[in-house]
């Protein structure tokens, strides 16, 4: 398990695992989600639409000084969708940006990932590679940042 998963999955229970998965799915390219859904054995199951996919705004908040009183920093575009399946499982997609199709794909996959018949396969074929991909992209940026770290300790008097 890589660090993206470790940091958050360390918390308890299926809710935190689902929370983590949704965070990963929100960062996936849409095509990767579409391919995963298309690859589900027996085809994508029927779903009922509870909240059709729509785009809107979320007000992003900060805290004064990082830890103090809350304030409104500004809005961001967000797309969301809520679905359910015949067994009554609820699937939620909430993703940054204006891609409604992606929000719907996340909601569908959220349902399938709760389904014992499809969950383990999708964990293996979609969630794990996605986590690795996100971790790799973060590590690449962190490595570039590290190369710009100013190290005041290496200078020794007399060195040029």
């Amino acid at each position: 398990m890589n660090t993206v998963e470790k940091t958050e999955a360390a918390a308890d229970g299926p809710a935190s695992a689902r929370r983590l998965r949704l965070g990963l799915l929100a960062r996936a390219p849409r095509q990767m989600l579409a391919d995963a859904l298309a690859g589900v054995a027996g085809g994508a199951p029927a779903v009922r639409v509870l909240k059709p996919a729509e785009t809107g705004l979320v007000m992003v908040r900060g805290r004064a000084g990082g830890t103090g009183e809350r304030f409104n920093l500004g809005e961001m575009t967000v797309s969301r969708c809520t679905l359910s399946d015949e067994a009554g499982r609820i699937g939620v997609g909430m993703v940054a940006g204006r891609d409604r199709a992606k929000a719907e794909l996340v909601a569908r996959l959220d349902i399938l990932l709760q389904d014992p018949a499809h969950g383990p396969g999708l964990e293996r074929d979609l969630v794990a590679p996605l986590a690795a991909r996100i971790e790799a992209a973060r590590a690449e940026r962190a490595a570039k940042a590290a190369a710009t770290r100013v190290d005041f300790f290496t200078m020794v008097r007399g060195d040029v």
Binding site: E54, G56, L57, V58, M59, R61, R63, L73, R141, T148
Partner: peptide
């Protein structure tokens, strides 16, 4: 032209993935 869905939790800048 867009509806407001709500507000986020305050962003945690201590957990920022640092570029600088």
């Amino acid at each position: 032209t867009l509806p407001r869905f709500g507000a986020s939790m305050p962003v945690d800048t201590a957990a920022m993935r640092i570029d600088r």
